[in-house]
Nucleic acid binder design. Structure first.
Lengths: 187, 187, 187, 187
DNA sequence: TATGAATGAGTATTCATTCAT
DNA sequence: CATGAATGAATACTCATTCAT
C-alpha cells in the first residue's frame, strides 16, 4: 500500500470517529506512520485531502452499484440497486459514514457534494421517470422524491450499520426496502 | 433581549452558517456585542453553550408541535403533526438546521441527542403502534420505521427551507406528506 | 511599559539583528516575556506588527526633526535639519536600521514605505525648491535629487552608527554634510 | 543553457521579486523546470546558491566596468566608469537589484558582501586619491566618501531602473553624475 | 547527472478559557 | 453582571535538505 493510500485509509478512520474538524493532520500522519510533510506532499491542504477521500469513496460506491443491464421488472431492478448499495454500505461502513459526514457539513461547498451524491444515486430519477411513465409510480415531484430516496437509503444503511444483527435479518431488509419503495408506488 | 438571549441567538446564526466547530466563541461574543468574558459568564464552556442552545430549540419545537387532543382519524392527526412541524421549521429554518447539525455531529454524545430528538418526534411511535393495531399501518419494525420517519421529516423540512417557493405549493406539501405516510400505510 | 510597547521594543531589537523574516513571532513573544497569544492580541498579524513598528519609528523621527521656525539662511537651516536627523539616528541606531530594513524589503508594499519616508524627509524638496528659486542650488530634477538626498542621509547615518568614534569627530560630521550639500549647491 | 545556469537565472528572478528568504528552493526548481534534487546537486545549500549567484553577478558587473586604459582627464574617466556601470545596471536591472538585496541583508556575513562591493567599485578610492593629490577633489575622509559614492551609484541606478523613460534623458543622466561628482569636487 | 518522494523541525496564527478590574 | 487583556497548547502548513532509484 502506497503512503498516499495509507494516509487516505487512516484519514477515513479518524474522520469518521472524531469528525473532520476534530482530526488534526498531524494525528493522521502519525497514525499512518508517515511524516506530516508527507501528508502535505500528497495533499496540498486538509481540504484537498477530504476532497480526494470523498472522490475515492464516491467512486467505489458508484462501481459497486453499477448494474450490467436492466434485468427484471421495475421493482426488481430497484431492489437490485438497493441491495447492492446496502451490501456495499455494510461492507464499508466507514465509507458510508464519511459520505454522510461530508454531506452534512455546513458552510462548505454544499452544492458540489450534493451533486456528487446525485451522480451516484442517479439511477433513482431514471427509475422514477420510467415508473411514472409506466403508471407504476405515483407522480411525485422529482426533486423532492430524489431528496427523500437519498435520505431513506442513507438512513437505512446507517441503521443496519448501527444494528449489525438486523442487517442479516431478511424481515428487516425487506421492510427497509418497502419503506422506500412503497412511498412512491401506485397502489 | 437579555445578553444571554442575545448570545444564544447570535450563536445559532453563526453555528448554522459556519458550523459549530468553525465558530469561535470570541466571534459569537463580538457579533452579539458583548465581551468574551460575558459569554463565559453565562455559559461555562462552549459545549454547554451548544447544549443550552439545543435545549432551547428542542423546547420550542416541542411546544409548537403539541396537539391539544387527538382530533380526527389517524391519518388526519398524523397530517396535523406533520404540518405543525413543517410550519415551525419554515418559520425557524436556522433552528431546524441547528438540530440537524447537532444530530449529525460525530464523536459526540450521540445517544443523548438522538434520544432528545425522539422525545420531540415521540408522537410517531405512538401513531405507528395505534395504526398497526387498527390495521391501517403495515407491521414495520418500530425502530427502523422511527428512524425513517424522523429522517423523512428532516429531509422534507430542509427541502422546503432550501426551496421556499415550493413551501407554499400545496401540491408539494401534499406530496411530501404522502411520501412519508404511504411508506407505512396498508394499501 | 505596557505589554504592547514591550512587544514593539523587543521586535525592533530582534528584527534589526536577525532580519524581519528570520525573526519568529514566538521568539519575539518569548524575549518580551509574554505569551504568543498576547502578541497576536495586540497585532493581528506579523505584517501588522511590522507596520505598527514602522509607524512608531517614523513618528519619532518626524518629531525629532521638527524645526520650530525657519532660522538662519538656507544652508544653515539645512544643516540644522541634517544634524537633528543625525543626532536622532545616533541616539536610536536600531530605529534607523529598521527603517532602512523596511525600505529595502522586496516584494512588499514598497510605495507605501517609500512615501512614508518622503513624508519625514519632506523638508528636503522644500529646501531644494527654495534654494533653486534663490539661485543658491543648481536646477537638479527634483525627483532624482530627493532620492539621492534621502540615500545620502541614510548612508551617512549608518556610517556613523557603524563607526561611533567618528560620530563625534567634527571633521567627519562636516564632511558628511558637505558631501550632501555641495552635491546640489551652485558654486 | 545548462540546468545549472537555468537554476541561477530563475533564482535571480525570483529572489529579486519575492525576496531571498521568501523564495523556496522548491519554487526555484519548479520554475526552472528541474527537480528539487537537481538544485541541491548543483548547489549544496540555499546559502551557497545565493553566494554563487552573487559571485556571478559581481563578475559580470566587474567585467562590464573594466576600463582598458585611463583615458582623458579625471572627471572624464570618472564619467566613463559611471556610464559603464549605469549602462550595465539598465541592461541587467535584476542583477543590480539582487546586489542591493544581498548588500542590505541583515544578520548575514555583512563584511564579506561589503568588501565584495568595494572590489567592484574599487575604482572610486583610486580616483579619489588621485583627484585629491591633483587638488581637483576636496580632502574628504576616504571611508566616508567611498560609502557615499557607492550609495549614490546604487541609488541613481535604481532610480533609472524604476523610471526607464528618464534613463535615456541626457539631462537626467548628466544630473545624476553631477550629483555624484560635485559632492567631492573642489570648486 | 537527475529525479521527486520523504522528512520533521519550524512558522504564523487560532481559540477556549481565565481572571483581575 | 460585565469586561477584555492575557494565556499557551494546538493547528494547518512550509521548507531546506536527504536519499534511494
Amino acid at each position: 500500500m502506497s503512503k498516499r493510500d495509507l494516509i487516505l485509509a487512516t484519514a477515513l478512520e479518524l474522520f469518521v470517529h472524531q469528525g473532520i474538524g476534530a482530526t488534526a493532520t498531524a494525528q493522521i500522519a502519525k497514525a499512518a506512520g508517515v511524516a506530516t510533510g508527507t501528508l502535505f506532499h500528497h495533499f496540498p491542504s486538509k481540504a484537498q485531502l477530504v476532497s480526494a477521500l470523498y472522490l475515492n469513496v464516491k467512486t467505489q460506491l458508484a462501481e459497486a452499484m453499477r448494474l450490467e443491464q436492466g434485468e427484471g421488472d421495475l421493482a426488481g431492478r430497484a431492489r437490485q440497486y438497493w441491495d447492492r448499495g446496502m451490501d456495499w454500505a455494510l461492507a464499508h461502513p466507514e465509507s458510508l459514514r464519511f459520505m454522510s459526514l461530508v454531506y452534512h457539513r455546513p458552510g462548505q461547498d454544499g452544492d458540489l457534494k450534493r451533486q456528487a451524491m446525485l451522480e451516484i444515486l442517479g439511477f433513482i430519477p431514471e427509475l422514477l421517470r420510467q415508473g411514472q411513465a409506466e403508471g407504476r409510480l405515483r407522480p411525485v415531484p422529482e426533486d423532492l422524491a430524489l431528496e427523500q430516496c437519498q435520505g431513506q437509503f442513507m438512513t437505512a444503511a446507517q441503521f443496519f450499520i448501527d444494528h449489525p444483527d438486523k442487517a442479516g435479518d431478511g424481515h428487516y431488509r425487506d421492510a427497509a426496502f418497502d419503506l422506500f419503495w412503497l412511498s412512491m408506488a401506485r397502489h
